Simulated scan of single mutants.
Amino acid sequence: MADETVLRVLVADDQDLFRAAFSMILDAQPDMAVVGEAADGAAAVRAAGELRPDVVVMDVRMPGMNGIEATQRICAALPVKVLVLTMFDLDEYVYDALRAGAGGFLLKDIRRDELAQAVRIVAAGDSLLAPAVTRRLVEDLVRRPGHGVVPRLAAQLRDLTEREAEILRQIARGRANAEIAGELYVSENTVKTHVSHVLGKLGLRDRVQAVVFAYESGLIVPGSPHD
């Protein structure tokens, strides 16, 4: 029965030292087991299909199939969470990784306890972004050719109640459930319920996609005084 609570992790990184370090850190956690390693995206896709891990810790820049394409293929085919790690806070692939379905995007210079906690958060179905990554996401959206509100997404906002729309704004500003609860003077459980409703109504898989949706729908305007 104890094994049922252990998170199965696959580590994909083309650099031997990083791959070994991440595997060692995660395998040492009492609630985790590293079930496999991969040195490129194609190997990660194959391993995910064979091993069915709960979480894949995915490097972005790998030879052959990169981490973005691998993330997209894994998320499209399997109920597997992906935590993307990169050396660069200004990595041009941030936006594409999130759109591909990554549940989190962090920098490789995080502490070992932060890495383990990030895996737990992503495995639980929540998501997380390093502050620098969040800024990069917004900047990338603004710079894209033809950037503007997507009418189809803007129309979907009408499906949300006023409270749900406010919850989505708070998510897009990077606030955790506890912070949102304090801001809106409601319980954390109430916030969790609203978040679940927002994701369900908009057909989003996690909070990361909610951030993207908030900007593309025009709910949040980059550069506004509150964002």
Rank of each mutant, 00 (worst) to 15 (best):
G174D: 11
R99I: 09
D89E: 15
A123G: 11
R152E: 15
I121C: 11
L160I: 02
V149Y: 13
L137G: 09
V149G: 09
V186P: 13
R143Q: 13
I180F: 02
R135V: 12
D96V: 08
P145W: 12
A165F: 02
V122C: 04
I68G: 01
T86C: 07
R99N: 12
A154V: 13
V80S: 06
D91Y: 00
L184P: 00
V186D: 03
V133H: 09
A100E: 03
D89F: 06
I68S: 03
K81A: 11
A102P: 00
L157E: 06
E139N: 14
T71V: 05
E162T: 05
V138S: 09
V122N: 01
E69R: 00
A176H: 08
D96T: 10
D113F: 10
Q72C: 07
L107A: 05
V119I: 09
L128K: 03
Q117S: 13
A130H: 11
R163K: 11
A97V: 02
A154N: 12
E179K: 06
L90W: 01
I68E: 03
T134I: 06
T134D: 05
L85Q: 02
D89A: 13
A181V: 11
L107S: 03
A100C: 08
A76W: 13
A172C: 07
A76R: 14
R135A: 15
V186S: 07
V82N: 00
E179P: 12
R144F: 07
A178N: 14
A176T: 14
D159Y: 07
G174Q: 12
T161P: 10
Y185V: 09
V142K: 11
T161I: 05
A172D: 04
R99L: 12
L85Y: 00
N189L: 02
V133E: 08
L160P: 04
P79K: 01
P145K: 13
R173F: 14
R111Y: 12
M87C: 09
V122G: 05
R143L: 14
D96I: 07
A165L: 07
R73T: 13
I74R: 08
R120V: 07
A176C: 11
R136F: 14
A118Y: 02
M65C: 10
G67T: 03
L115V: 05
E139T: 10
Y93A: 15
N177R: 04
K108D: 02
G125S: 09
V82D: 00
D113P: 01
V133W: 14
R144A: 12
V119A: 05
M65I: 09
D89T: 11
V138R: 10
M87D: 04
F105M: 02
E69K: 00
L160E: 06
Y185F: 09
L129E: 08
A70I: 10
D140K: 10
G174A: 08
R136P: 11
G103P: 05
E162A: 12
V80W: 00
G146Y: 13
L129A: 07
R143K: 14
V119S: 03
E114W: 04
E179I: 03
T161A: 04
V84C: 01
L115S: 05
D91R: 06
R163A: 13
I110K: 02
R173S: 10
G146Q: 14
L128W: 05
R163D: 15
C75Y: 05
A178C: 08
V84K: 00
E164L: 08
V80Q: 01
D96N: 14
